[in-house]
Computed example of a mutant assay.
Amino acid sequence: MIIRDNPHSLRLFFIIRGSVLPLIYLRIIFITLLGAGVAGAEHFYPEAFPDFTLAPVALFGVALSLFLGFRNNASYDRWWEGRKQWGKLIVASRSLSRQMISYVDSKQPEGAETQKYVINLVIAFSHALRHQLRKSDPWPDIEPYVAQKDMQYLRDAQSLTDGILRLIAIRLGECRRQNSLSDFLMLKMDEHMTAMADVQASCERIQNTPLPFAYMLLVQRTAYLYCFILPFGIVASQGLMTPLFSAIIAYTFFGLDALSEELEEPFGVSANDLPLHAMSRTIEINLLDILGEKPLPEPIQAHHHRLE
């Protein structure tokens, strides 16, 4: 995710990092060259170009703008839903850890070990979920927080995140059977575990249910078709300025299309995707602080205005 102060209006024209220009500049160049070719041909052979009215091009542009607007809104809704779910995970992780420290007596036999065991597993859950969503190797990040006796159990689990939640539930169940937790406290802690499972399921729903392919295909085809016919529609009125207007409109439509594609998959590693690494590190720092561990890991910092 791009993190930066609002730049001066003049600098906006020169910012490349975080924009979609690197993804679409070849298409813009092609449309600009097409516009230049059409403008040159019309300048030297005006009789070959009938005097088109701008009305059909304008109506086509309005329709395309509506399509792109709907798709952009749908993609942003997915991005924002992903961010809200990770916000819920931060709240549930802090709340469960706070209750472990507050209500499990560290002076009782195995009380302090139980606190550390559960809170470490909560940290491991956040890292495991991040790696699951990004399809990367989770073990280097979670091994420091998982007991050696549980490693094989988690490696055999079909879902690593679900396996971690089961280990937490098993340990809390043992506490209840030993009367270390009351039924009421057990119920409240289970609510936080359920919230964590709900975040996992919601993120999986977003990741595994993309926008309908036919809708995406319709928008992209229409955007390409419009930008291809645009120079022919405006050359009679714009003349040698046709390449400039063609480039601006191509940047707008192709840019919205490319941005929608990035936002549609909010858990990736593109410049505008969610900073899952930074959020999982925030959970790690907060929970280790609850345990009283020192020194704490450093927060993830933005590198060249990009937070991962």
Rank of each mutant, 00 (worst) to 15 (best):
Ile2Phe: 09
Ile2Tyr: 07
Ile2Gln: 03
Asn6Met: 12
Leu12Asp: 06
Phe14Gln: 02
Pro22Asp: 02
Leu23His: 11
Leu26Trp: 13
Leu33Phe: 14
Gly37Val: 08
Gly61Asp: 01
Ser65Arg: 05
Leu68Asp: 01
Gly69Ser: 13
Tyr76Phe: 12
Arg78Ala: 05
Trp79Met: 11
Gly82Asn: 04
Lys88Gly: 01
Arg94Pro: 00
Arg98Trp: 10
Ala112Tyr: 10
Thr114Leu: 11
Tyr117Asn: 12
Phe125Cys: 03
His127Trp: 15
Leu129Ser: 02
Lys135Cys: 08
Asp137Cys: 03
Asp156Cys: 01
Ala157Gln: 07
Ala157Ile: 00
Gln158Asn: 13
Leu167His: 01
Cys175Glu: 12
Ser180Met: 14
Leu185Met: 09
Leu185Asp: 04
Glu191Gly: 14
Gln207Ala: 15
Asn208Met: 12
Pro210Trp: 08
Tyr224His: 09
Leu225Thr: 09
Leu225Pro: 00
Tyr226Leu: 07
Tyr226Phe: 15
Phe228Met: 11
Val235His: 10
Ala236Leu: 00
Gln238Ser: 04
Thr242Phe: 08
Leu244Ala: 14
Thr252Met: 01
Thr252Glu: 03
Glu262His: 14
Leu263Phe: 12
Glu264Met: 11
Glu264Asp: 15
Gly268Leu: 10
Asp273Ser: 14
His277Val: 00
His303Arg: 07
His304Arg: 08
